[in-house]
Amino acid sequence: MSELLIMPDGKIYAHNLTPEMAAVLSELNPEDEAIQQRVVTHVGPETKKLLPANWNEAKPNL
């Protein structure tokens, strides 16, 4: 379970961020570097071997 705090100016603060919630937040703002870094690293190398070659790391199918 993740917890979010959404500010009036649109900033989102998160803690206990799960891979699933990171994927959702990355959809909301694909330009945000911090969240993108967390999406693309959520799958380990062994799992990546099992994914199709055209798998889009920025938009994982969770």
């Binding site: 989102i12 803690h15 911090a34 969240i35 967390r38």
Partner: peptide, 10 residues
């Protein structure tokens, strides 16, 4: 929108 991550649960 800017996402600021914090995970300082401890």
């Amino acid at each position: 929108m800017v996402s600021e991550l914090s995970s300082f649960h401890v």
